[in-house]
């Protein structure tokens, strides 16, 4: 039976969750290797992506849309406080995400409030997401133009 989850484990999981938005928004796609396990699965609003290379491709696709990762910033992934349950080897996390961008009048708007449902695994002492399901809870994903 696995050991209980320590404070260090929880902080490490929070660190992974906190790294994800900066990887997309900065952008630093290769930094997602510190977020997802090599064989991770991402089920997003636009489909399912298995393995790091496919997840990199998904992120590059978002960035190619022109808003995600733009300089100056056009869109921000704001992540709330996660609810984490599990042990020292595996855990789940549920986290709200607020997508912020500009409307046509250049005012900040919230097109989407979503949630991440994550399954985490610790391999070689490092926590990574094994599976992420991205749900759109309120609103809709912003267009890519």
């Amino acid at each position: 039976m696995a050991e209980p989850m320590s404070a260090q484990d929880r902080l490490d999981v929070m660190d992974v969750l906190g790294r994800y938005p900066f990887c997309l928004d900065s952008p630093n796609v290769e930094g997602l290797a510190e977020v997802f396990a090599p064989d991770a699965v991402l089920e997003g609003i636009g489909g399912s992506f298995a393995g790091l290379e496919a997840i990199f491709g998904w992120a590059h696709g978002l960035i190619a849309g022109g808003r995600v990762g733009a300089d100056p910033p056009q869109l921000v992934h704001f992540v709330g406080l996660p609810f984490i349950e599990g042990d020292a080897e595996r855990c789940s996390a549920r986290t709200y995400s607020v997508i912020l961008t500009y409307d046509e009048a250049k005012q900040i708007t919230v097109p989407l409030v979503g949630s991440y449902e994550d399954a985490f695994v610790k391999k070689d002492g490092r926590w990574r997401i094994q599976k992420r399901i991205i749900r759109g809870d309120l609103g809709r994903a912003p267009s890519r133009d």
Partner: peptide
């Protein structure tokens, strides 16, 4: 660091 800043704020 600036991120999103609304037109009204600008």
């Amino acid at each position: 660091q600036p991120g999103l800043v609304s037109a009204a704020r600008r």
